[in-house]
C-alpha cells in the first residue's frame, strides 16, 4: 500500500548512548523504522522512554552513536554541525511545547526567522512566505501582533506557521499541546489534521494516549526500543471532537 510513497525518514538500528559520569545511559537501543511522505505519526511512551532523544535525532539536532539515519535520502550521521544546520533549515520544521517565539517580536517576523538563514530568499519573498504561512494557521489578521500580546494558542499557531514557512519535508512537534487547555489542544489537532490532509508529513511526540486516535500511525516507545508500531485505520476527526466539547463556560 505504501510502496508508491516516498520515504521521508529512514532509521536503521539507531542507538544513542549518553555517558553520565562512569555510567552509560542507553537512551535509544536500536530503533528502525520508515516514515513515508504524508504520514501523521504520533510517538508515545512513558517519561524517560527516549521520545525527546529520538526527536532530536530526527531533527538533526543530535547524531546517533551508531546506526544510520536518512532524511529525505540524505545520510545524516556523518554530517558536520554546520551541514546539519543547513539541513534543518531546508527540511525540518520544529514546534516546541513552550512555543519559543522571539520576545518583543511580531508574529510575521517570528515566522520569517528560518528564512533569514536562507540566502535564496530576499526580504520581499520572506515576507510573502511568512504571511502565507500565518494565513494557513488562521492568523492572517494578526501579522503585526507582538509575541507578548498573544494567547498560548495563538503563540503556538505562530510557532506552527514558523515550522511551515520553509516548506519542510517533515514537521516535528514535541508535546506541542502540552501547555494548552483541552479546547485549544483540540484546535491545534484540527490544524495538524488539516496540514496532514494537505499532504504534510508530521511527527508528533506526546504523553496523551487520546491523541493517537487522530493520527495515521502510532509508535510506542519503552526503554529506548519500539514496543508497538500501529497504523490507525480509523482516524477520528478532531474537528468533530472539538464541536462535541461542552461550550466554554463564563463564570
Amino acid at each position: 500500500m505504501k510502496d508508491n510513497k516516498r520515504v521521508v525518514i529512514e532509521l536503521q538500528d539507531v542507538r544513542r548512548n549518553f555517558k553520565v559520569g562512569s555510567e552509560v545511559v542507553h537512551a535509544l537501543r536500536g530503533i528502525s523504522f520508515k516514515i513515508y511522505e504524508g504520514e501523521f505519526v504520533t510517538i508515545m511512551g512513558t517519561s524517560g522512554s527516549g521520545k525527546s532523544t529520538l526527536l532530536n535525532q530526527l531533527g538533526c539536532l543530535d547524531t546517533p552513536t551508531s546506526g544510520e539515519y536518512y532524511l529525505d535520502g540524505t545520510p545524516v550521521r556523518k554530517m558536520k554541525r554546520s551541514e546539519r544546520a543547513v539541513l534543518r533549515n531546508r527540511k525540518i520544521g520544529f514546534v516546541f511545547q513552550n512555543y519559543n517565539l522571539l520576545p518583543k517580536t511580531t508574529a510575521v517576523e517570528n515566522v520569517e526567522l528560518p528564512l533569514m538563514y536562507n540566502t535564496k530568499y530576499n526580504a520581499k519573498q520572506r515576507r510573502e512566505a511568512a504571511v502565507k504561512a500565518l494565513q494557513a494557521v488562521g492568523l492572517g489578521e494578526r501579522l503585526e501582533h507582538k509575541s507578548n500580546q498573544m494567547s498560548g494558542g495563538q503563540m503556538q499557531r505562530v510557532a506552527i506557521a514558523r515550522a511551515l514557512v520553509n516548506d519542510p519535508a517533515v514537521i516535528l512537534a514535541d508535546e506541542a499541546t502540552g501547555n494548552l487547555d483541552t479546547r485549544t489542544s483540540f484546535e491545534m489537532l484540527v490544524l495538524f489534521q488539516r496540514l496532514h490532509k494537505e499532504g504534510r508529513t508530521i511527527i508528533f511526540v506526546t504523553h496523551n494516549p487520546e491523541i493517537a486516535q487522530y493520527s495515521s500511525r502510532n509508535i510506542m516507545l519503552r526503554d529506548g526500543k519500539i514496543r508497538e508500531d500501529q497504523i490507525n485505520e480509523n482516524i477520528q476527526s478532531a474537528a468533530e471532537a472539538l464541536a462535541a466539547l461542552p461550550a466554554p463556560q463564563d463564570d
Partner: peptide, 14 residues
C-alpha cells in the same frame, strides 16, 4: 534565543 535560531537553521558562524 540562540537555541531557537540554531534549531531553525542558524549555523555557528551565523
Amino acid at each position: 534565543e540562540i537555541g531557537l535560531r540554531m534549531s531553525v537553521g542558524a549555523r555557528g558562524r551565523d
